[in-house]
Design a protein around this nucleic acid. Sequence first.
DNA 1: GTCTATAATCCGATAGAC
DNA 2: GTCTATCGGATTATAGAC
Lengths: 198, 198
Amino acid sequence: MTNLVEKNVPRPTKRARLTEAAARIVHQQGVERTTISDIAQAADVPVGNVYYYFKTKDDLVAAAVSEQARQLELLTGHLNELPDPRERLKALINQWGAQGETAARYGCPTGTLAAELDKRAEAGLDAEVGNVIRALLDWVAAQFQELGVPKPQDKAIALVGAYQGMSVLANALREPDIMKRESARLIQQLDAIIADTR
Amino acid sequence: MTNLVEKNVPRPTKRARLTEAAARIVHQQGVERTTISDIAQAADVPVGNVYYYFKTKDDLVAAAVSEQARQLELLTGHLNELPDPRERLKALINQWGAQGETAARYGCPTGTLAAELDKRAEAGLDAEVGNVIRALLDWVAAQFQELGVPKPQDKAIALVGAYQGMSVLANALREPDIMKRESARLIQQLDAIIADTR
DNA sequence: GTCTATAATCCGATAGAC
DNA sequence: GTCTATCGGATTATAGAC
């Protein structure tokens, strides 16, 4: 992870704009089809100037990954304010259902990025996306743990896996409804699991 | 779909080799990172000669998609020889578990290809991969239907979705075990669904 | 039908003026 | 710090000899 802020030097706005644009455009177009110029345009930064903030294209992709990590932390931080882990999980699933249109068009941001980076021979970036997914899995497992559900980690894999799977199908078939129907089913399944442990 | 075989003209071996190589290399490297030269080398065909068989790179990608459709037909054709739809579904799931190493390294061939093609602006190829996934969904739904399970299409989406999801996770985390554990769980779940309807 | 040489293009990256 | 002009490499595609 790069050191973004030196002592007493305010974080430049352009870097933040480029990071946000990188995450958005890469989600929509994929890593390989996205050019530096695409991201520069979206961030309203002159093309050549990008290299002042990011030495290589891979640095920009790394920024997109860390942006996803940041957004996940924001989400879980928000969910943690709910008192009941059961409500936290339901809110997460509802969030997935609400993102249906985007997922049907471009897939899950993290899942599709991981799929693309994992096809590279060089290691590095793929591991970082893996960590984002692992963070989500760990958070979900912690909720199951708190609920006293047996095998919380396996339950987390099943739940997050179901989300990734419905994203792939909704995307491949271009059917946003799949996200809604499947997330409704996941909530029912969640209730069944919890009822089972009591 | 291109007309591969004209009357009395035997199918050239090179085209078949290129098609197979396209499917394999694209699965491993992704569409964008795969060059014509990569495929030509893998098929042992001189680079410039490729254009005699496929006018553009997209034609080669289309060939990779149709190769996947062909392999799916081979698989379901084989599974259809089993008398019991329950056994057919179990054999399918076991097949998924057996592919664990490959899925952990490169993801599901169809799922990752769909994710990549769906990020393109132009329509065409993405719809064709969508049809491959739809064919799998339809076959699975037909098995559930034959078993008298309620809402067979929803059950098919849940099952195929679970497979896509576990492929994404196994790939992102580089853990082949996920494929084995999850496919074992899916078989248990299948038994529960069938027991439920009797 | 097969293959080589090369044209045309695109894109990541740099040099250097301001 | 900001921006323009441009280089160099990679890759798709074609022209044309065999």
